[in-house]
Write a protein that binds this DNA or RNA. Sequence first.
DNA 1: TCTGGGGTCCTAGGACCC
DNA 2: TCTGGGGTCCTAGGACCC
Length: 420
Amino acid sequence: MLALVDCNNFYASCERLFMPSLNRKPIVVLSNNDGCVVARSEEAKKLGIEMGALAFEMDDFFKKNDVAVFSSNYTLYGSLSNRVQKTLANFKGDIEIYSIDEAFFDTQWYHDNELFNLGVSIKSTIFQNVGIPVSVGIAPTKTLAKMANRYAKKENREIGVYILDTAKKIRDVLEYTQIGDVWGIGSAHEKRLLEKGIKTASDFINLPDDWVRKNMSVVGLRMLQELRGIPCIDLEIEPPAKKGICTARSFGKLLSNKQDLEEALANYTHSCAVKLRNQKSCTTLITVFIQTNSFRKTDKQYFNSISIPLTVATNASNELIKYANWGLNKIYRSGYNFKKVGIMLTNIVPESQIQAGMFDTINRERNNNLMKILDGCNKTLGKDLVRFARLGYNNNWRLKQQYLSHRYTTNINEVLTISI
DNA sequence: TCTGGGGTCCTAGGACCC
DNA sequence: TCTGGGGTCCTAGGACCC
């Protein structure tokens, strides 16, 4: 059996943790640039606030209903996510970190009659140690564990643990779950299945295999098997190295000045390079792209991208920034209001397998040592202490984060203060 | 009129996830 | 004024090979 441990309204719960006055109050967390709603507390959901609702349209509603509004604070959420994972890791059994707020857990070390207590214990230990509420779903496959978890959240909230350990319980939950709420069914498949009269997961598992294969590919077929209780998706204990790394952000305001774009791109490139070095990989293909705001119909529109193949794979920030900047200069045009710049690193290879270039003029050993020292300093002395000049200080491209909370757990200047 | 057959590799696009 | 960001997997179709 597999357990899915999922944090309840994770971002909202993180914000609430350091502001207990917000207990039982509606909370929303906004996307980058405070654009739209990406997370809601239960109270906010009850007020009818939709996922993706535009923040500027909701302003009055938020004020009227005393809704606490936050900008996304990924430093805080990432840090609390780590604490949740560490607490879960203290239980005996393999873990797959599935996302910032979810993990699968292999329960093979526990007897069937211990599973309920296990679920309750996971839930209460995480709450005790970290303060984040979670729900636990336990079932024979990942897809069913997802479903069990959802059921625990919706229908069994007080306990927050649900186990699909009998054929009858599985049947009932399959009937309970609308087809669009099945893990792996997105809007496109939902539409097609509804047209065919398939309303619930229970309807779905009775479809013929070849129809599913034909219309939903092997992905659909796997889903079908998983829902029938046959595991097809393995637990991934070691996260595989990423095949592509991308950083792209909309700016806090529109920019037309090339220097601003260059500074933003240098920062995104450096951030990609750090991720690359963390997973001990190098890239051989850089793609840089820029775009205007396509929502502004009155603006002149421009989108362009350029791919730059490298003869020798690298993960050095300074080198990548140089190439990226060259690419940006190729595709930049003056006279446009730019909304976003981004960089993608693909054709990723392990650090240990790079091929030397015959005409390579870069002193790679020296550069690698420089990166090691830079990463080491930034890790021990705080993020971004040692910087490249190119990363700049103009910051015109920075995100709009009007409602940002403190980085309570990672920055000594922002820890919670209590007056007694 | 009629245009082989069987592979591989790459890319773009679509589907999905949180 | 305002519309998120970062990933994965699969398939079809074109290019290219002998």
